[in-house]
Amino acid sequence: MDRFVVVSGCSGGGKSTLVAELARRGHATVTEPGRRIVARESASGGAALPWVDLAAFARAAIAMALADRAALMTGEDPAFGAGPVFFDRGLIDAAAALEHATGEKVLAPLAAVHRYNPLVFMTPPWPEIYAQDPERRHGFQDALAEYERLLAAYPAQGYEVVPVPRTSVTARADFILERLGL
């Protein structure tokens, strides 16, 4: 769906800050499934955490990404209106993670049915702003490896990857909106 726009890229590359800036400007946004899952699993003592069970985490992220899309498609959440919806990561990210963890071929079948805008905005590795936190325990080298997988996964599913420049968050948001013609 053309109005569903993914902001993906390197973990710790400023995706969530960028999506928050788009929300501040009045655009509809969807929070990253991974962070929501980590918060839920940590609060409940669950094991679907990327550092405990990556496959379970990726499956939960796929389910959450599908539920997010379904809620938007059916109009269950009237706050989203008819304009663009910016996703902090999406289904492709989760499916790529599951394929990496298990070798299970889920990416192409899911991507064929559940489409996003053909432009995917990728935040590049940015060591100067990368930081670990309770929800991001992996190191920068793991973030780089994930980024490389995503750089391959999105084009393989027919998406055009648009690198987001390393600049201020306001300039990054302007860049995305201008590239979308908004």
Rank of each mutant, 00 (worst) to 15 (best):
M1D: 11
D2A: 15
G9I: 01
G12P: 12
G12C: 11
G13Y: 03
S16D: 09
T17W: 01
E21C: 09
E21N: 05
L22N: 09
R24I: 00
R24C: 02
R25F: 07
R25D: 07
E32S: 10
R35C: 01
I37G: 00
V38G: 00
A43E: 14
G45D: 03
G45T: 01
G45M: 05
A47G: 07
A48K: 04
W51F: 03
W51D: 08
V52Y: 09
A55R: 08
A65H: 13
A67N: 11
A67L: 14
A67E: 15
D68A: 11
R69F: 05
A70R: 15
A70I: 14
L72S: 01
M73P: 01
E76Q: 13
D77C: 12
G83L: 04
P84Q: 05
P84Y: 14
F86P: 08
F87C: 12
F87L: 15
R89G: 12
L91A: 08
I92S: 06
D93E: 03
A94Q: 10
A96W: 02
A97F: 12
E99M: 02
E99P: 02
H100C: 04
H100P: 02
A101C: 00
A101F: 02
T102V: 10
T102K: 03
E104K: 00
E104P: 10
K105I: 03
P109C: 08
A111V: 00
A112T: 01
A112R: 05
A112M: 05
V113C: 06
V113Q: 10
H114D: 15
Y116Q: 14
V120M: 00
M122C: 05
P124F: 03
P127Q: 07
I129V: 14
A131M: 08
Q132P: 09
P134V: 02
R136W: 06
A145V: 05
E148A: 14
R149G: 04
R149A: 03
L150M: 12
A152S: 05
P155G: 07
V161G: 09
P165H: 06
P165N: 11
T167E: 05
V169S: 04
R172C: 07
A173S: 13
R179M: 09
L182P: 01
